[in-house]
Write a protein that binds this DNA or RNA. Structure first.
Lengths: 340, 340
DNA sequence: CTAATTAATGCAACCGGTTGTATTATTCGT
DNA sequence: ACGAATAATACAACCGGTTGCATTAATTAG
């Protein structure tokens, strides 16, 4: 059996409370006593039982992470990198990440991730893929559980951390326009997600800036997966094969787009330029390398944990909205349009 | 405040124990009483506090998952898919996954993932990337904590779940040989991992079978990352540019290999064929699509959780070794060698 | 009709910590 | 030298459940 606080107390002829306080660094215990306690703990390998601590303090030091399981995310390297950074930062603050990898997007009013929230097992939650009119906000707020979104939330009272979607998309699309592209297709994400909306907005702004009318025939929505991007591109090509560039709302969909274009006999970038979003490492390893808007993925992971930790400690009661800079990253998948 | 068992008991004029037993389905409580209890629980939204349950029962219903954070894994889609399936299956069995995403591989004798194990927060652990002579085995065994490896472990007494590495690699390499390839380079994983060893063994077996001598000049080891594959391939090309095919021990490294080949002016598959391992979805989206050995990634995730759950329930005291079939998946990155 | 069973519930200890307050031992001022 | 302040530690309640055993009530057998 692992030693308990009581074991330590018995050995040292002290009370549980003194031992507990000694380990917690309470200034009330004498220096000499603390040393004895620490030495013994070291020697017999005592470690406080976090479950018992959790019961007593009502804090678990665990952060719940709601990653959408199906169909997206769990094959999107973006999330892995994000998750790694978040986990690392959490650890630095003394927290662990409890994964809620559940199917179901709450379309039926049932939010599987909220199970975790209700469970009293976590001190706070990180939510991904904020929706327009996200029902989870109400649920969590009612419970008084701190939470932070990865991605912009509509409600001004909730905290979130996001990349500069609109500006980044606008800048990248403007770059396509500068090269001479006029017919630029767009593969968006699911309409109910704020990330889809904000990136699409950047696309529209860039077109508007250049005086190019929005043509909905060359806009299709995917679901942030490779297949989704593939299918969306197919559908665009059926309507109108005469595009010279495509902006996909994330890299993974861009890969699907590239495949659809190739299957249509089009060469990238000679016939069609392709632009992604996210900046996952893989973009540099495909052929041709994918131009993209690089998000600081790891920083997003770190920042979101830091914001959440702040909320949990009650330091900042007011909501925090953090926008991290993104950067257009040119690559071989983008070139001037074919002369004609 | 969320209602407690005591609250329920007070309202119903029952004792805590009866309420607890009613909810647990103990046959000793009267049917009518149970109904009252369940109805009230439903009405006021009572949910047992898992922390308190954990303290009382000494079970947390949490599975620890040690994912190697740096440098690999957390950008390898393989792990995400695995993780998704594992999380899903865990949930089905009433468990959650606690992530240990920490740096450090124990090279200095310190294993960050073991923190989780020591914490008494988890009922069992899933370990990835088993090493040859893995020190973690001793640590966990001493604590008596159930654990299962993803990938073959040397020690016959530990449980593991793995794809058929050796056979799969041999079959795929044999396919290259059938096509006429003779000089087949190999980019292996880190030498201390069993996965590297077993896949490399398949490569050697296929060569031996065909009477082709092993040439260590065209073998280099990577670290299962894109960059690692890229650098390993570069180094092979420096020694000997005259290869006609490459077998990379995982898909992600294969992407790096492809990039290195392209930078050397070589065309895939005309000049050099490339073969990967894992079968991540992305293989079908790169150009040309990557031939690979498809592992049943989701099944690996499900199976490993099931094995672990079995161990935790003490059903099976004897170690379980589960090998899942893999399948060679041809694609455009492999073609007969250029005639000369 | 009483003793022995059985059914239903309650009591109280326990899991392993934290923390407010009481207690004892020192030290200090005057 | 004595009461007050201070330092160091102990006591005991509490967090919210689970569980062995005692208790009470109802039923059955003889």
């Amino acid at each position: 059996m692992r030693p308990t606080l009581q074991d330590m107390a018995s050995i040292l002829n002290l009370s549980k409370s003194t031992v507990s306080r000694a380990l917690a660094g309470d200034p009330r215990v004498a220096e000499a006593t603390r040393n004895r306690v620490v030495a013994l703990a070291e020697r017999i390998g005592y470690r406080p039982n976090p479950i018992a601590q959790g019961l007593a303090t009502r804090r678990t030091n665990i952060i719940g992470l709601a990653v959408p399981c199906a169909p997206r995310s769990l094959s999107d390297p973006f999330y892995l990198e994000f998750l790694g950074a978040a986990g690392d930062t959490a650890m630095r603050y003394g927290y662990s990440l409890l994964l809620s990898a559940a199917d179901g997007d709450g379309a039926d009013g049932y939010h599987p991730h909220m199970e975790l929230a209700h469970s009293a097992r976590v001190d706070g939650m990180i939510l991904t893929e904020p929706k327009i009119q996200d029902e989870r906000v109400g649920i969590l707020r009612k419970m008084g559980l701190p939470f932070v979104f990865l991605g912009m939330a509509e409600d001004p009272d909730v905290s979130w951390v996001s990349g500069e979607n609109t500006g980044g998309a606008a800048e990248a699309v403007a770059h396509l326009i500068d090269l001479g592209h006029r017919k630029i297709a767009c593969v968006t994400g699911p309409a109910d997600q704020t990330a889809s909306e904000t990136r699409f907005k950047g696309y529209r702004e860039a077109l508007a800036e250049a005086g190019i009318p929005l043509d909905l025939n060359i806009v299709a929505s995917g679901d942030f997966t490779q297949i989704g991007g593939y299918q969306a591109m197919k559908s665009i090509l059926r309507h109108d094969g005469d595009i010279s560039a495509v902006f996909a709302s994330n890299d993974v969909m861009a890969f699907g787009v590239m495949r659809a274009l190739r299957e249509a006999g089009l060469v990238i970038p000679d016939d069609v330029s392709v632009l992604g979003f996210d900046g996952i490492p893989l973009t540099q390893y495909v052929n041709p390398p994918l131009a993209t808007v690089r998000q600081p993925i790891s920083e997003l992971g770190s920042a979101i944990v830091e914001v959440l930790v702040g909320q949990m400690n009650g330091k900042s009661l007011c909501p925090i909205h953090k926008v991290l800079n993104v950067e257009y990253q040119p690559a071989g998948s983008v070139a001037p349009p074919r002369c004609r």
